[in-house]
């Protein structure tokens, strides 16, 4: 049967069905296939009297009793019922994607900071401020992005925890790079003899104290050359007696102090290493104490 005749037959069937469903006899007697189809349709139409099963109303009433509130108020352009409403909890795939995104963003920020510091674009005392001011809003933004992506407190907490864990694992590397950039200039600048306490740079000392108390990797101390040309100019404009720690340094201290110390290790008991001691050890390993070689 061609498409045209098929369409004609379908239309004829519809006309016959319309007159048949009206209750009366068809306008013109139909025969052949059309009559067979009308009979089939009539056969199936008898099912319109099929009742609903008993007990369904009671079950629905029980479920409706659990529903909070009644019908919702009209919303614009909401004529079609559409699919079921979205659940309050975000799908696991979306939450996972938000957490991964947050971790990647935190990692990218840290890498950017490390690269920037390694290239010597910022002087040592201002580094902690840069790190603190850059990382904290980023973490906040990441947490807020995660929160907006998931809309669940648990998912937000998960994303924030993931970001914190990423920061925790990535910061030691960042710190190692920062230390090398912080301490080496001091070694090239300060005389070999220990400086007087009133001439020490309190900012640099605080940096060394706070950072060294966390992770002291000896590799970084020995690997940095003392006459690195990149670093010497960056420290030349440092005054021999710097003013006390600037207020911008506080965020770093807060950031460092809020981190949980390594179990079994007392941070407060970590000996304070003066910056003036470091160049001595770096320049001449033979002068290092025997236990530190």
């Amino acid at each position: 049967m061609s498409d045209a005749s098929d369409r004609d037959f379908a239309r004829a069937l519809e006309v016959a069905l319309a007159s048949d469903s009206g209750g009366g006899a068809p306008a013109s007697p139909v025969q052949g296939e059309l009559a067979d189809l009308l009979a089939t349709a009539g056969h199936v139409r008898r099912l319109q009297a099929l009742p609903a099963p008993l007990g369904l109303a009671e079950r629905l009433a029980a479920r409706l009793a659990l529903e909070p509130g009644g019908p919702r108020r009209p919303e614009p352009s909401a004529e079609s019922p559409g699919p079921a409403p979205k659940p309050a909890v975000a799908p696991p795939g979306r939450t996972r994607a938000a957490v991964v995104l947050a971790a990647l963003a935190a990692l990218a920020i840290l890498v950017w900071l490390a690269v920037r510091e390694e290239s010597g674009t910022s002087v040592a005392p201002s580094m902690p401020t840069v790190g603190a001011t850059a990382i904290r809003p980023a973490a906040t933004a990441i947490a807020s992005v995660s929160a907006s992506a998931t809309h669940t407190p648990s998912a937000t907490a998960g994303a924030a925890a993931s970001a914190r864990s990423t920061l925790g694992t990535a910061l030691p590397q960042h710190r190692a790079v920062t230390r090398s950039a912080t301490m080496t200039p001091t070694s090239t600048m300060l005389p070999p003899q220990p400086a007087a306490p009133d001439q020490e740079d309190p900012t640099a000392r605080a940096t060394a104290t706070v950072r060294h108390s966390e992770t002291p990797p000896p590799v970084t101390q020995t690997a940095v050359p003392t006459d690195t040309p990149v670093i010497v100019p960056s420290k030349t404009d440092l005054p021999p007696t710097s003013p006390p720690a600037s207020p911008t340094f506080k965020p770093t201290e807060q950031r460092e102090s809020t981190r949980t110390p390594t179990p079994g290790r007392d941070v407060s008991e970590t000996p304070e290493i003066k910056p003036t001691e470091e160049p001595t050890r770096v320049v001449d390993p033979g002068r290092m104490p025997p236990g530190r070689r």
């Binding site: 079950r59 629905l60 409706l64 009644g70 919702r72 108020r73 009209p74 919303e75 019922p81 409403p85």
Partner: peptide, 14 residues
């Protein structure tokens, strides 16, 4: 059927 009427109950205002 139950889901249909539950959905209708929720969305009837729309």
């Amino acid at each position: 059927c139950q889901e249909v009427f539950l959905q209708a109950h929720r969305s009837l205002g729309e």
